[in-house]
Amino acid sequence: MIQLKNISKIYGKAGSQQVKALDNVSLTINKGEFVAIVGASGSGKTTMMNILGMLDRQTSGEYYFENKVVSILSNNELASIRSGKIGFVFQKFHLLPKTSAVENVELPLIYTDHKDIRHMALEALNKVGLSNRIKHRSNELSSGQQQRVAIARALVNNPEMILGDEPTGNLDSQTGLEIVDIFQQMNRTGKTVILITHQQNIAEHTNRIIRIHDGKIVEDYRVQNPRNIAGELMKLDTMNK
């Protein structure tokens, strides 16, 4: 589904001080994979996610999305791919303020040809277990609930690929696990899920871990026994009691 060939991303103008955020990265991710991209801050993982999500363009190398060359697409064409095939979940949620949960989830549909956007948004909220919070405004929701709204927003277009940029970064460990649980469920329905994280324990819930350091892939391995969230949540529960 995704293929990166010798991708480099350099910030700063030629001549001045340049930062190589990605250095000659090659990578293939197949449809239906659940991948964690891990690394310390400054390792280049966010740059990777921006390029994968077509929010940014690489300096050199080639990116193939469903066998199409991305670099030749116009901004409007990229917008249309993001709209139809990619769902984003951010660390800071990025919900619209003063706006209800359901309207936040409707946002991506505004830019599509879908007609019954309210119905689709409600369905997505149901999938993340927020059917009882649809009219609540962003500031009336807990951070875990806000992230669920954000996930519902990422799901509402029924995308091929979901990109999570530190989606558990602003959450406590239990809520974080609940969110990862949702990602696991999404992956089971056949969606490609890519999580960017610096938390090893979060990464261990995925099927494949790609470690980045100084803009290079230093490790790329399958997780033999991905951790089971339901069990861990139960363990946390008993600990709290």
Binding site: A79, S80, G84, F88, H94, L96, P108
Partner: peptide, 9 residues
């Protein structure tokens, strides 16, 4: 965000 979720310029 609007751009990320698919709004064109």
């Amino acid at each position: 965000l609007r751009k990320a979720v698919g709004a064109s310029p």
